[in-house]
Design a protein around this nucleic acid. Structure first.
Length: 601
RNA sequence: GCCCCUGUAGCUCAAUGGACAGAGCACCUGCCUUCUAAGCAGUUGGCUGAGAGUUCGAAUCUCUCCAGGGGCGCCA
């Protein structure tokens, strides 16, 4: 649990006070010290804190060595405690229901507290106190000289959102990219280019062009396997750092990087630092030498590779980490070689990292466990601060894995274009009076949001199945629904002449009787900071996706049931402030998801 | 053979160890002179893969099965 977690509970003080009283109650009756776990009342439209007394009842019965009915005793206790508490300061009502104790907040003051806090803190509502702890998140490791497809999107979106959440939760975050800019795939690409396309340059759709060129190279080599020799020769030239090859590699690599930049820009994803695969090739080999010198790695060259028998070194009887190959028998580097050096480089560049996260496909779990354990064995104290954040892949319907070679890919460029195009059609239909620029702006927000949301609104460990129909469906539980709630809130405020917080009515206690929808909405607003901390602690954007949708739904209920502009004072002012607060928290949640909150739709 | 993940409504997914397991999609029926219908209301839909255990209480924790997916010495 991050430091200061308790502070993110908005009603901590009240809860403590009630806890004290219940403690006094127990002492008075000679009951065991209760261990109460407080939660919110789990019914829509009910607002307050709640605990069960089953545990206390069970404790008591056990301590006394009695055989009694816990359910009945808990019910009794709840009733007795409710009577003992009366109506504590700040609460409106206390009720005992079947072993549960529910304390309802005085909405007049608590509603004001929540709404005022949101409006005062604005874009910072929900932001955790700065922890002065730095973490690095490595994500979106795209291969240059290849296509970028929807399968590659999850690491990019998940990583970006985790960065946003961790930063908001209070961490100093370093966003790292790790492009695969060298390797056999690059050499094949260069070979094809030099032989058949010398001098050509990509005009537009750079990434697609790069991908097509790679596919062409693969096809040529499949059709004429004897050409492999040329590729090997070219790889040798690269290894010698032949100036012509290096120059061409640099130039063409940049084309890919330019293409990626364009996609990152459209997706609103940025990086603080780029580590390139090519940067860690030689340092990795040096680390392998070091491992051999330390007696951790075994050198079987030239008849075998350099390996680390991790289980043996740890003295494990059962296989767990198995054997990691850290260098090929021909002295060429593997991913493992490079990952050793990369991990070290990260901590050399940022010695104060408390965590070094790797947002990478779950299939590489064992690989990372091996690499991190090897580094630990080599005596690097920071090795235990490295952590793999696994996620499941994106497949096509029928559990078809996206693979460029199989032609089973949805190119990101196509998806973005289609999504925006489709969104534009819908805007034309729904809101024809907007200007062309506005329509395009909305279409981008909606199209990109629709792409991102499904990748974030499920467990990291669950496969996302991509299908066009679902991706382009803007109805229901999806980003546009949340964006639409934001737009509706915005619309009310606009009509009320509220352009900024200062235009709102003054802070006020909510003395009028709040509708269920209002209570539900305020309750959710108050939960947002907790969800931020939870998402950060568990590394799960899902929690933010859920609260964002819940907020949108609660606001939509409110919108349908509670008129704002046409209602009498002081209800009008109170609701106006609630609308402004709702808009703010929905916007904050969307911001964490990397989804634009539009003003109009 | 060893290890990891998943199994909840027809489909896609939620659910701080707690109160009647909830949404969306799809299907059906309604609702635009009232703050934007990308919306809302209603109807239908479940022995949470099976079994045991821990617990006052299990979709959630443990174990054993079953089913599906993934990983496991020179792929990335």
């Amino acid at each position: 649990m991050p430091k200061g977690f308790q502070e993110y509970r908005m009603f901590e003080a009240e809860q403590k006070q009630v806890n004290q009283r219940i403690l006094a109650f127990c002492r008075e009756r000679g009951l065991p010290e209760p261990r109460l776990s407080w939660g919110w009342i789990p019914f829509d439209g009910h607002w307050g804190i709640s605990t069960s007394l089953f545990q206390l009842a069970a404790q008591e019965i056990r301590a006394a060595g009695l055989k009694a009915n816990v359910q009945e005793r808990a019910t009794e206790l709840a009733e007795q405690i409710a009577a003992f508490l009366g109506t504590p300061e700040g609460f409106e009502r206390v009720e005992a229901v079947r072993g549960y104790l529910n304390l309802y907040f005085s909405t007049a003051t608590y509603a004001q507290r929540v709404i005022d806090a949101v409006l005062e803190q604005g874009i910072n509502f929900g932001r955790g106190e700065r922890l002065h702890e730095r973490v690095m998140v490595e994500f979106s490791q795209p291969n240059t000289h290849k296509a970028f497809h929807v399968g590659h999107l999850r690491s990019a979106i998940l990583g970006d959102t985790l960065c946003r959440i961790l930063e908001f939760a209070g961490y100093d975050v370093v966003r790292a990219n790790y492009p695969g800019d060298i390797g056999l795939h690059v050499i094949k690409w260069l070979w094809n280019y030099m032989k058949y396309h010398a001098g050509e340059r990509p005009e537009k759709d750079i990434t697609r062009w790069m991908g097509d060129m790679y596919a062409e190279a693969v096809r040529r080599l499949e059709e004429n396997p004897e050409l492999e020799a040329e590729v090997r020769a070219l790889y040798a030239r690269w290894d010698q750092r032949d100036p012509e090859v290096v120059r061409l590699w640099q130039e063409t690599r940049q084309w890919s990087l330019d293409g990626f930049d364009e996609m990152y820009r459209q997706l609103d994803i940025r990086f603080d630092v780029y580590y390139f695969n090519s940067m860690v090739e030689h340092p990795g080999k040096e680390m392998v030498d070091e491992l051999i010198a330390k007696g951790i790695a075994q050198d079987e060259r030239p008849n075998g590779p350099v390996i680390v028998k991790i289980d043996e070194l740890l003295g494990l009887k059962q296989e767990k980490y198995r054997v990691l190959v850290v260098l090929r028998s021909d002295n060429t580097a593997l991913y493992a070689t490079e990952d050793l050096a990369l991990a070290k480089k990260k901590f050399t560049d940022y010695p104060d990292l408390v965590r070094s996260y790797y947002v990478v496909d779950v299939r590489q779990s064992l690989h990372f466990q091996q690499v991190f354990k090897t580094l630990e064995l080599a005596g690097y104290e920071w090795a235990t601060r490295c952590q793999h954040v696994p996620y499941e892949i994106v497949t096509l319907p029928g559990n078809v894995v996206m693979a460029s070679r199989e032609g089973t890919v949805v190119l990101l460029e196509n998806l973005i274009r289609e999504a925006i195009q489709r969104a534009l059609q819908v805007v034309e239909e729904k809101n024809p009076e907007l200007s062309a620029d506005q329509k395009m702006e909305v279409a981008r927000a909606v199209g990109i949001g629709a792409i991102k949301y499904p990748m974030l609104a499920r467990e990291n460990a669950k496969i996302v199945t991509f299908d066009w129909q679902a991706a382009l469906d803007f109805n229901g539980q999806a980003a546009p629904y949340i964006q639409y709630a934001h737009v509706r809130a915005n619309s009310i405020l606009r009509k009320a002449g509220v352009a900024k917080v200062e235009d709102l009515p003054a802070p006020m206690p909510y003395r009028y009787s709040l509708a269920q929808a209002e209570i539900q909405l305020i309750d959710l607003l108050s939960r947002f900071p907790r969800e931020v901390q939870r998402a950060a602690a568990e590394l799960k954007p899902l929690h933010i996706a859920n609260i964002a949708y819940d907020l949108a739904r609660a606001f939509t209920d409110f919108y349908n049931e509670c008129p704002v502009l046409s209602v009498e004072e002081p209800v009008r002012s109170g609701r106006l402030r609630l609308v402004a607060a709702s808009r703010q928290v929905i916007a904050n949640a969307l911001q964490l998801l990397g989804i634009t909150a539009p003003e109009v739709m």
